[in-house]
Design a protein around this nucleic acid. Structure first.
Lengths: 112, 112
DNA sequence: TGAATATTTCATGATTGCATGAATTATTGA
DNA sequence: TCAATAATTCATGCAATCATGAAATATTCA
């Protein structure tokens, strides 16, 4: 809504706005709440481990993924709530200044 | 789904991932299908006209906004379909690799 | 045609983001 | 304790992004 919120959302979008990170979060989303070990993700995406760490840290800093250590492995999982919040922020205020119906292309006509 | 698509989506997210552009597209979304003249948007966001053009061009290149000239003015409007497509791409494959129920935090449990 | 408004284009410099390779830390098991 | 695996940290160089100010283009109207 306000400037601060736009900054926060922009930070999250910046975190998502890279092919490797986008592929990573979609793999993690598909893997569900358990998540994936960093090494496994590294193999699936064919990305060097250190490079993957670099990108996962950006996602984590934005609150889009979380990690936990389990023995040798570090598991990452997607934070679904954060992803959904982004969605709403983008189209949530759609057509709020318009009186007439926005037509079928308006997101708010589709939702709920 | 595939690499190419991730690149396209990443490009759109990159276009969104800036406070000015985020504020701009939300103003345009709120304004509905008619959109807003560039100068009016420049005033509302308190951004210099040339700077705004810079950012609007990024959004347009990503297919997130469109423009039309109307006399002296150039109107920009949000492309709602493109915004919705982003949403789906982010959470669409959620938990696809998981058998059991993902719980209330899973986006796919909320949708539809 | 000439002035005023609206918008875009261009040029510059500073900052940030990213890829790569080498080194380091943490954990497990022999 | 030593070796092997998993993951992170660090250092370097390069490319892309952004803010800013000046100049150019398009449109309207007197």
């Amino acid at each position: 809504m306000n400037q601060d919120n736009d900054d926060i959302v922009a930070r999250k979008l910046t975190a998502l706005a890279h092919p490797i990170r986008l592929a990573a979060i979609r793999q993690l989303a598909a893997a569900g709440p358990t998540g994936l070990a960093a090494g496994r993700l590294s193999e699936r995406l064919d990305v060097a481990p250190n490079a993957l760490t670099f990108h996962l840290q950006k996602l984590a800093a934005a609150g889009l993924v979380e990690s936990r250590r389990e023995g040798q492995f570090v598991y990452y999982r997607a934070v679904f709530d954060a992803l959904l919040a982004l969605t709403d922020h983008l189209v949530g205020a759609c057509c709020s200044e318009v009186e007439e119906n926005c037509g079928p292309n308006c997101p708010t006509s589709h939702r709920r």
